[in-house]
Simulated scan of single mutants.
Amino acid sequence: MAVEVKELLEAGVHFGHLTRKWDPNMAPYVYMERNGIHIINLYKTAAKIEEAGAALAKIAASGRKILFVATKKQAKDIVAEKAGDINMPYITERWPGGMLTNFVTIRKAVKKMASIDRMKKDGTFMTLSKKERLQVDRLRAKLEKNLGSITDMTRLPGALFVVDIKREHIAIKEAQKLNIPIFAMVDTNSDPRQVDYVIPANDDASKSIDKILSHVSSAIAGGLAERKAEKDASAKDDAPKAKAAPKAKATAEEEE
């Protein structure tokens, strides 16, 4: 799906921050200044969305997960919805320190959730005292709130997609340490050099976030569809071989 500059304009993607708050490294993406606010060059934004989308589609097609990170109020629900639609993990509550750099510990916490669920299914939970059950329930609720959306992420993600790199600076640092590619919406008050794939855009308005995320999730969905098509084609190719095997065996027996 081609990115139209007009639709970006209508969503307010072009509104940057106050000029006095800008990061000079964003200069290549700034079109002009109006009423003390920097205006982002939407032609560059459109090109960068397509570039990022192509790279994300490749990662999705390879079978790796893309972790979405957005803990700011106006982005939370949008990210949860868009990432959820394409079955990708996301963090919309506080970033758990060591989420990437100490992934083994995070996985243990996720497994703890699973073990509590098993306890409830097999009846072990009811053998606990009322006080213990209350404690276990509280722990389960806390884990669900912070880590519920990453239960299917059994290994480190193939990429990070971030809304507001200033706010999510801990996530950015962890990804950098592990050389995990970073895709992000970058506003005029942030340093784009921290990101591998920069999408210059207003990261404060929900309309702008929704518009960018729609394009990004659509590109990832395309990569997932490509992966599924390849798997289906591979399964079809293997089916005749499986049928042919007994025939070949019978021929060998006839020759004897």
Rank of each mutant, 00 (worst) to 15 (best):
A60C: 10
E256Y: 09
N87H: 10
G12A: 03
S190A: 15
S190G: 10
K243S: 10
H17S: 10
K241S: 07
L56F: 04
A60I: 12
N102W: 08
A60S: 08
D117S: 13
V30L: 06
P89S: 14
M119Q: 10
E50R: 08
Y31G: 03
N146R: 11
T92W: 14
G63M: 06
N25L: 12
S129W: 09
T188A: 01
L139R: 08
K247H: 09
G53L: 05
M1H: 13
M126S: 14
A70E: 08
A54I: 07
W22N: 07
E254S: 09
K211A: 12
I182H: 01
L42K: 04
I37K: 15
G98L: 02
D77C: 10
Q135R: 15
I39A: 12
I199M: 06
T71H: 13
A221N: 06
R227E: 04
A233E: 02
S214A: 14
E230I: 06
K173T: 00
E254H: 06
A114T: 13
V3G: 14
T45C: 00
N87C: 10
K76G: 03
V195Q: 04
I165M: 07
A175E: 02
R34H: 11
A250P: 04
I49V: 05
A11N: 03
I40L: 09
S214M: 07
V136T: 07
A83T: 03
K166G: 13
A252P: 04
E50M: 11
S115F: 08
G53Q: 02
Y31L: 14
S218F: 06
N41Q: 04
F183S: 02
R107M: 12
I59E: 01
S149P: 00
